[in-house]
């Protein structure tokens, strides 16, 4: 593997709450820090280390991250409370869920904060045919405006709350169900990001319906 990780010190510039348990943090981008959309960094806080994927595009002047405050989560809780101006040690970038050249159509599949890499990819200009974004309810959908103005078929997959009637961009069910029953036949490359359980289930469906498809995935617990 190519060696690309270095250590940096970054300063928290902004925090914005997007829902009751999810927020966005913005840090300055060091001049010598370069990344590819979809890559993540490691934040070091109080003896703990956590990976966070960069939400902002490659050429942005700052680094934005999407964080869900986890029950019992050490770093997500600290990041939610540290004052603006706090300096943090950051290592990176790393990860291989990045744009790969292809003749096939890309299908991006995210659940929860797994949307982060795709925000950066879309904002950086990557073409994709579909974005399937699985969440429990409308309130948990973030960055809608980024996806709605593109040629992308943006499908919100709501697993708990019902979709508005006659919505062509909303699916009642999990992303797995959409891929299994709705996604048109085609030549695809799948990019998956979310909990491992979702990645496992989606992978099984892809193996069955689209056995020739490539799958790139990054999961978390």
């Amino acid at each position: 593997m190519k060696k690309g990780r270095s250590n940096f010190v970054v300063t928290l510039e902004k925090r914005r709450w997007l829902s009751q348990d999810t927020y966005e943090v913005t840090f300055n981008k060091p001049e010598d820090f370069f990344f590819r959309s979809g890559q993540h960094v490691i934040f070091h806080m109080g003896g703990e280390e956590r990976d966070y994927t960069i939400v902002s595009p490659e050429n942005d002047s700052c680094l934005v991250f999407l964080v869900k405050e986890m029950k019992g989560g050490v770093v997500s809780k600290q990041l939610a409370g540290i004052p603006i101006g706090t300096e943090l040690k950051m290592t990176g970038p790393g990860g291989y869920l990045v744009e790969r050249p292809t003749q096939k159509q890309r299908v991006l599949v995210a659940t929860g904060t797994g949307i982060a890499p795709f925000c950066s990819m879309i904002a950086s200009g990557m073409n994709a045919a579909f974005l399937l974004y699985g969440v429990r309810n409308q309130e948990s959908l973030h960055y809608n405006s980024l996806f709605e103005g593109t040629a992308l078929h943006y499908i919100k997959c709501l697993s708990v709350e019902a979709c508005m009637k006659n919505s062509s961009t909303c699916y009642d069910g999990h992303v797995t169900g959409f891929i299994k029953d709705i996604l048109p036949v085609g030549q695809y490359e799948f990019y998956l990001c979310g909990k491992w359980d979702m990645i496992k289930d989606v992978t099984h469906v892809i193996d069955t319906r689209f056995p020739d498809a490539n799958i790139y995935s990054e999961g978390f617990y």
Binding site: I199, H204, D207
Partner: peptide, 8 residues
Amino acid sequence: TGGGDKGK
């Protein structure tokens, strides 16, 4: 991950 349960 269980992603390989089907032999792939």
